[in-house]
Design a protein around this nucleic acid. Structure first.
Length: 377
DNA sequence: TAATCGTGGCA
DNA sequence: TTGCCAAGATT
């Protein structure tokens, strides 16, 4: 054993991913002081309505503040209370959410509003078990709501907090492999006298100072305590998961016109990708198959109708979280048969003017834009 | 436990 | 153009 590895028994040394409890007051105080001076002013911070705070927490899952803000205002204008949300139609709910992504969040908000009306007399619950029981709310969102709306001292652990804490203790593995330790850290650090401001401050620190790229450590209240900074590791922490290459699919898509000047759209099933949204029908181009052959086959299989594939309309590249797609869109003509919802929840013939009443995913909005700029001949 | 689930912005 | 990542939850 070298001299540097000999440690005094009277002063036990913590593993590198834990904190010395004696620094907690200084960490809390410096963060709260920084927050009062440099914290962001955000719409949901200026009021106390648990419903509005809940909506913001759900919208902010995996989504940046700048993206959320216009959606947040539109949502509260459309659904100002839990009761108005509960009685709304799901299509109306998804339409307001259109473009924000992760559409299960909107479906779960809608369902949870109905649960609150039925089981909590329309009042958002203020106890952890009841909040966790609502669809779409996990441990971190529950902590965010309880601290922000009810001033209860529950910890949070979103992406910002994971990054801040991983740097603070120079976490020697990707955060996902140490969630238990990070939750303990978040709970240990939390200022029980100021849970709302502390949690908000922790997220602001991650969003504005302890950023993923080029953190501005000179502005950080925790720089004197940061093990990553001390080791010059702030740019390479937190450690990353090994990345797998995204698979790619080519999808043949049909814009099918009938003799009444209407196009055919279908509503996707509730579960899975883009659940509950509308789309132009189509499917994956198989090996050894042309796009035109694919479109004819898919429309026969999924809608039970016969079509004639006409001119190419547009090709759209789009990246989802776990794969990329190329949509090759053709105009088509309805030949025979009544469309049936064989692989979807619903099918409808609609005019071009009616399309904007339905919630569509982004790639399909691009198809609609192409239709408007290249109307059928 | 690990895969699934959108979109926008940035380098 | 590509990769990475953002106020995570669900199954």
């Amino acid at each position: 054993m070298t001299l540097s590895q000999q440690l005094p028994l009277s002063q036990p040394v913590l593993p590198s991913h834990q904190l010395d409890g004696s620094v907690l007051p200084a960490l809390r105080q410096s963060l709260l002081t920084w927050y009062r001076q440099a914290g962001r002013e955000l719409p949901w911070r200026s009021q106390q309505d648990p419903y509005a705070i809940w909506v913001s927490e759900i919208m902010l899952q995996q989504t940046q503040v700048k993206t959320v803000i216009p959606y947040y205002h539109r949502w509260l204008q459309q659904f100002p209370t839990i009761a108005t949300l509960a009685i709304a139609d799901q299509q109306q709910v998804l339409k307001v959410w259109q473009g924000l992504g992760y559409y299960a969040r909107a479906r779960n908000l809608h369902r949870a509003a109905q649960v609150i009306m039925q089981q909590h007399q329309g009042q958002f619950p203020d106890q952890l078990p009841a909040i966790l029981a609502l669809p779409g709310i996990g441990r971190s969102t529950a902590g965010g709501i309880l601290s922000a709306a009810f001033h209860q001292a529950w910890p949070i652990l979103d992406g910002n907090v994971q990054r801040v804490l991983a740097r603070l203790v120079a976490l020697p593995c990707p955060p996902r492999q140490a969630l238990n330790a990070l939750w303990q850290l978040s709970a240990q650090l939390l200022d029980a006298q100021h849970p709302r401001d502390f949690n908000q401050a922790l997220m602001d620190l991650g969003a504005t100072v302890c950023t993923p790229q080029q953190p501005t450590c000179q502005n950080c209240p925790w720089q004197p305590h940061c093990q990553a900074y001390d080791q010059g590791m702030q740019s390479s922490l937190p450690m990353r998961e090994p990345t797998v290459p995204l698979p790619h699919k080519t999808i043949g898509v049909a814009v099918i016109w009938n003799d009444q000047g209407q196009v055919l759209i279908d509503r996707r099933r509730q579960s899975g990708l883009l659940g509950g949204l509308w789309e132009f029908p189509g499917g994956k181009v198989e090996v050894g198959e042309t796009v035109v052959e694919c479109i004819v086959r898919e429309i026969q299989e999924e809608l039970g109708i016969e079509i004639a594939v006409a001119q190419h309309l547009v090709t759209i590249d789009h990246a989802y979280t776990h794969f990329r797609v190329t949509l090759v869109v053709h105009c088509c003509r309805h030949i025979a048969g009544t469309p049936q919802p064989l692989a979807c929840d619903e099918v409808r013939w609609v005019t071009l003017e009616e399309l904007d009443q339905f919630p569509f995913p982004k790639a399909n909005v691009q198809i609609i834009e192409a239709l408007h700029s290249h109307p059928p001949t």
